[in-house]
Each structure stands twice: as structure tokens, then as C-alpha cells.
């Protein structure tokens, strides 16, 4: 199929997607908008985790630590100056009077998460497999402990509240599209092939001249950047950040989303994040109706178990969406 035509389809699909976003923003009720926002944030988290874990093969349990860093950076930047002065006495004075909008907060959140990933990665990425998993989990714990105890900057366990609700569907959906596009482009680039090569055979990859530590660090840092942005969006959506929000539940949730979607498949991550967000919301409704609280988590876990048993490679394996394949099923013009 002609590549110009494929681009045309892609633009049309994007047009339809943003039309949907417009309709939801204009006519959807608050609940649907909130679910839509969460869905887009989960898409960003899952796709960026897939870059470092699925595509690059770093067993990371610390991804949500980068989300926490992003969320706190955005929270501190967007918190109203009065509250900042009262709560965050540990900040330098010039920062008390600053209150940024969402875009600078997002970018700085991503950047700081990336810088931390760079520093942490230099050390942690020397480890592999289960050792890397334990070390990244250690990182997550450290982030949480710092957030809990750095009273004059994070306000400890009470968290930062009264954040302006900047996040809306336009921000989250645009950030999700940018993340998907960026990770997709990386996957299809020579860097992406190098990542797959290092994942599959570290030694062979190095013997053809790939700088394996460098490429692993690259995947880790880019992944942390987008995860930090997701943290910023989350902070200004929920309006509160506290240490407990960014811990094991979210860590497990995005790992499950990635694995069920297919490790290595961007398409799979998107499908899975969208699907699980809807499933979780439906289950929550069901739970309230029958008044058996907690049952949604059990059903969620069973879905995951069944998937691991009957389709361990996930929904998509490592395959990707292509218009060519769509055309085989639906006759497109």
C-alpha cells in the first residue's frame, strides 16, 4: 500500500479521535471526562513502560517512582503562591512567587524525571534481570520515603492539595498521541532495532558494535521522561499528590497492562490500557451494585491470570497495528 495513503488514513483516524475528544469535552459529563483523562494517562504510562521493559527488556519495578517525581514537580510548580509560602518553607524564596501553567510544569516534570533516570540508570542498569527488578523497586521505595519525610518540600504524608485543575482531555489526549508517536518512531528507528538486539542477545549485540549500556540508558531515560509527564497530568487532574498514590498498586497496574497488551508492542499497550481502564470502571460499578467491595480487584487479577496462562505473549505479542492488516479485514478505499 502506498505510504502517502497510509499517512492519509492515519490523519483521518487522528481527526476522528480528536473529534471524539471534542465531543466528550463539550458534551460528556464529569465522570466520563475523568475516565477519559485517566485512560489517556494510563496509555502514556503503559506505552512508556513498554519502551524500557518490553522493547528494551529492563525489568523495572520502579517506573512509578518517575511518575511520582513528575507529579511532585508539577504540584510544586502549579501550587498557588500563598500555599507555597505557607507549606513549602524548604523551597528557595524566588520559587514561592512562581506559579506556572501546565505546559511548563509538564515539561519540567518530564525533564527532572529523565535527569533522575539518567543518574539512577548509570548505577542500576549494570544489573540485569531479577537484580535490576530488585534495584528499581529499591528506587521506588526511596522516592516514597523521601516524599514522606521531606516535609518542607513535599509536605510529607499530608501531601500537596488544592492544585489547580489544569488537566483536561485536550492535554491528556495530545500527550498520549505524542508519546505513542515518539515511542513508535524510536521502535522503528535504528535505535529501536539496537534495543531489540541488546534485549535478545546482549553479547551478540555488543559484538556487532552496539554500545549496550548506552542504548539501555537511552531507553530508560526516554521512558522516564514520558512517565514524568504522566505524573504531571495526574497531579493536575486529581488535584492532590501524596506519597501513597505512587506506589505498588500503580506499579502492578501498568505492568499488568503492558504484559496483557504484549511486551514490545506499542499497539498492544494502547489497546490494553484502554481496555483495562474501561474494565476497572465497569467492575467498580458492579461492585457498588452488589456491595461486595474489593471484588473488582479479584476479577482483575483473574483476567490477568487467565491471560498469562492462555495467551502469555499478550494480545498483540510484539506485532504492531498497520493499515495493511486492517485492509485485509475491512475494504478501505
Amino acid at each position: 500500500m502506498h505510504s502517502g495513503r497510509q499517512a492519509g488514513y492515519t490523519f483521518m483516524a487522528l481527526g476522528l479521535f480528536f473529534l471524539g475528544i471534542y465531543l466528550l469535552s463539550a458534551y460528556g459529563n464529569h465522570y466520563y471526562q475523568r475516565v477519559g483523562n485517566l485512560m489517556m494517562i494510563y496509555v502514556i504510562l503503559t506505552v512508556s513502560l513498554n519502551l524500557s521493559s518490553g522493547i528494551m527488556g529492563i525489568s523495572s519495578l520502579g517506573q512509578i517512582g518517575f511518575m511520582a517525581i513528575g507529579a511532585y514537580v508539577a504540584a510544586i510548580l502549579t501550587l498557588p503562591p500563598g500555599l507555597k509560602e505557607r507549606w513549602l518553607t524548604g523551597l528557595p524564596h524566588w520559587m514561592h512567587s512562581i506559579q506556572t501553567g501546565l505546559l511548563p510544569a509538564m515539561l519540567l516534570a518530564g525533564l527532572l524525571a529523565a535527569v533522575v533516570a539518567f543518574l539512577v540508570g548509570i548505577v542500576i542498569l549494570r544489573l540485569q534481570g531479577v537484580f535490576a527488578a530488585v534495584a528499581t523497586l529499591g528506587f521506588l521505595i526511596i522516592v516514597k520515603v523521601i516524599a514522606e519525610n521531606w516535609m518542607t518540600v513535599t509536605r510529607g504524608g499530608r501531601g500537596l492539595s488544592a492544585l489547580p485543575a489544569y488537566t483536561n482531555l485536550w492535554w491528556t489526549s495530545t500527550a498520549a498521541v505524542v508519546t505513542i508517536y515518539a515511542v513508535w518512531r524510536i521502535l522503528k528507528s535504528p535505535h529501536g532495532r539496537s534495543m531489540i538486539a541488546v534485549r535478545e542477545h546482549d553479547l551478540a549485540a555488543q559484538s556487532v558494535g552496539i554500545n549496550a549500556p548506552k542504548i539501555r540508558l537511552l531507553a530508560f531515560v526516554i521512558s522516564a521522561f514520558f512517565t514524568g509527564i504522566a505524573g504531571a497530568l495526574w497531579a493536575n487532574l486529581i488535584g492532590v499528590v501524596s506519597p501513597g498514590s505512587f506506589y505498588l498498586w500503580l506499579t502492578l497496574l501498568i505492568i499488568i497492562m503492558m504484559v496483557v497488551g504484549g511486551m514490545g508492542s506499542v499497539t498492544g499497550s494502547v489497546i490494553s490500557a484502554v481496555g483495562f481502564t474501561i474494565l476497572l470502571e465497569l467492575l467498580r460499578g458492579f461492585e457498588n451494585k452488589i456491595a461486595m467491595y474489593g471484588i473488582s480487584y479479584i476479577i482483575f487479577a483473574v483476567v490477568f491470570l487467565l491471560m498469562i496462562i492462555f495467551r502469555p505473549e499478550g494480545i498483540m505479542g510484539d506485532r504492531e497495528f498497520s493499515w495493511r492488516n486492517v485492509r485485509r479485514i475491512i475494504p478501505l478505499p
Partner: peptide, 22 residues
């Protein structure tokens, strides 16, 4: 050329060759 082949199994044959010229 390391022992035991160690080709990149999920990359195509062409991509494997290209990786050699990375």
C-alpha cells in the same frame, strides 16, 4: 561472530544484516 549463532530472532533477516553495519 560469537559461538552459538546468537542471531536476533525477532528481527528480520534483513534487519539482522543491517545491525551488523550499525
Amino acid at each position: 561472530c560469537p559461538e552459538g549463532r546468537r542471531i536476533f530472532s525477532s528481527l528480520t533477516v534483513y534487519e539482522n544484516l543491517i545491525m551488523g553495519a550499525v
